[in-house]
């Protein structure tokens, strides 16, 4: 039997959840015996090469590219897991949710105290750039998400326990110390 395949991505996140994933330390050697990685920043595979079993999503959706990636993950992965507060509820990027998008862009590119070089007051308008969304969306409001692992970042033990439970079909161990929202 071939090994289960894992794909991971970071949408509107800070890569903290991926760093926390690497915090499983030497257990990564054990993990690589159990699973195979496909599209993921961990092995630097940029595009899906086959259908995957588990997709780990870090970060919420703040622009059109995030939505596209998330939908692709939904198509390519049997099981999707929201990893961390940003994927679950938007996280810190969602602090902008109450502020109109125009105001946000003006603060960032025109009126902000650290804006100096933008003499012509240009807002990012290149057609190559993804469109920013009206607000930041939790992943499960865009596609169906199967499991959620809270934390900022989720503790390495929690990620490890979840992966082992998913790969071996066992029950998820949720120790109190590993279950945090921050």
């Amino acid at each position: 039997m071939s090994k289960p395949v894992i794909a991971t991505t970071s949408l509107a996140g800070c890569f903290g959840c991926h760093m926390s994933f690497l915090d499983i330390d030497e257990r990564i050697l054990e993990l690589i015996e159990l699973v195979e990685f496909n599209k993921s920043p961990i092995d630097d595979i940029k595009t899906f090469t086959k259908q995957c079993d588990i997709g780990l999503i870090e970060g919420g959706c703040c622009n059109s590219e995030n939505i596209e990636t998330l939908k692709e993950f939904r198509r390519m992965c049997k099981t999707l897991v929201s990893l961390g507060e940003c994927a679950i509820m938007g996280g810190l990027p969602a602090l902008r949710n109450g502020i109109p998008i125009r105001e946000c862009l003006h603060e960032a590119y025109i009126n902000g105290p650290t804006v100096g070089l933008n003499k012509e007051n240009i807002l990012p308008n290149d057609s190559e750039l993804p469109m920013i969304l009206d607000r930041v969306y939790p992943c499960h409001e865009i596609v169906k998400i199967d499991y959620f692992l809270p934390g900022c970042a989720p503790r390495a033990d929690l990620i490890w326990n979840a992966l082992i439970a998913l790969v071996t079909g066992g029950e998820l161990q949720l120790p109190y110390e590993a279950f945090k929202f921050d």
Partner: peptide, 8 residues
């Protein structure tokens, strides 16, 4: 509410 635990 707006409960952003990581920044609270």
């Amino acid at each position: 509410g707006n409960h952003f635990c990581p920044s609270c």
